[in-house]
Design a protein around this nucleic acid. Structure first.
Lengths: 216, 216
DNA sequence: TTTAATTAATCAAACGTTTGTTTAATTCAA
DNA sequence: TTGAATTAAACAAACGTTTGATTAATTAAA
């Protein structure tokens, strides 16, 4: 009936394949996953992946474009907010980062797998561009804080590396995470709310201790 | 002539293949690299890889076992040293970590690529076991510092994650690293001594600010 | 309204390559 | 001369991709 309905069905199918692909690639890696694997998991015919996306490589590009926008929006809002102090903005960004990344562990893992490969330049630069764009806000705020002398004269780039690197380290491996925090086997750090709180608290304390100038 | 010489030659060839493999896997990933690629790069016959290592998977295991011991030794020494304070030990570990990891960027990348895959359990747990063993020293020292009340009551596990995560973040991508620090294209952060110094300085400051209790 | 034409979606089957691995013959060193 | 090292060739299996047929839904013409 509805003319829009057709497009709707089409998009649903593409999204269904993308979702299955993200999960599969996170488990086995992009090269380690075959289109037949993916087709079986998504319960579609093998030909459908190339029908919808053109090729396996283009499927990956589609995944990046479909999911990568998940960071923006809130970040610009935080940066522009005149009522917040610099350290309050850092706190807000920490909460935003942790929430967003913990909500898409599989996608996050897939992106980092590709980042770690020095070849595959096209995909590589694509991912890096998104990453740099997403972290620009953080950089600006740190530099502003230093300028206003409410932050110590820290290393802005490496401060970003510490903040994001901590989250990435936690996301590295669920198994590693479980071993580090000594939890029972079926504990899932990514959905566990207490763990999210713990990570946010740690990052805030770390950044406060590092960024805020001693009162003297 | 020498009876040991035969073993020497044998090992040299194996090591030559391992070195080529680490470089190749870092560029294209383990699954993304074919044995023919590897044979061509190492300038050996395709059959030699399986002749020496048995299979592609066993080659990976051999790489892990051959290179993974690179961390130990100095760490135990630092931990046992009675003349150093806890924060001095942290500083020593930072210098040790940064030096060791920056000296093997390709190997480091290969390990992390595998860590990010949730399947491939055998390799996965192998790498995790090594990782946990290597970080146990750091954990012990942090906990000792807290016990002696020279450190604040920090989160030991996530403090480790911040320290190692920062280094990993820098190691993630050379291209990303260059973009972050705004250097010219042919700048190599891994061999550049000034960058190493900068990273060490940042980590020490970060840990000092976070770990050391305020004097009151 | 009925019928024909057109379209998108889906499928099983097959395409040519590349994959990891093995074989059997050959070279080499001791 | 013996055993290890090395080779080119061959292997089946798996790979990404393409094909041509079939279905179902939509549009156009009668």
């Amino acid at each position: 009936m509805l003319p829009a309905n057709h497009q709707q069905v089409f998009s649903d199918k593409k999204e269904h394949i993308i979702n299955a692909a993200v999960e599969l690639f996170a488990e086995k890696g992009f090269e380690g996953s075959s289109i037949r694997d993916l087709a079986a998991r998504a319960d579609v015919n093998v030909a459908m992946v190339n029908y919808y996306f053109g090729s396996k490589d283009k499927l990956f590009t589609a995944i990046v474009e479909h999911r990568a926008s998940f960071m923006r929006g809130k970040l610009d809002e935080i940066e522009a907010d005149k009522t917040m102090s610099e350290i309050e903005k850092i706190d807000a960004i920490i909460e935003n980062y942790v929430t967003k990344i913990l909500s898409q562990p599989a996608f996050h893992r897939v992106m980092h797998q590709e980042l770690l490969k020095t070849e595959r330049e096209a995909m590589h630069e694509n991912i890096i561009r998104i990453f740099v764009r997403n972290t620009k806000t953080l950089r600006t705020i740190i530099e502003q804080g230093i300028k206003k002398k409410v932050f110590k004269k820290v290393d802005p780039e490496l401060t970003m590396a510490s903040l994001i690197g901590t989250i990435n380290q936690v996301m590295l491996s669920k198994a590693l995470c479980i071993m580090l925090v000594d939890k029972e086997k079926n504990f899932d750090p990514y959905t566990d709310l207490a763990f999210r709180t713990r990570l946010v608290k740690h990052l805030k304390q770390l950044m406060h201790g590092y960024l805020l100038a001693d009162k003297n």
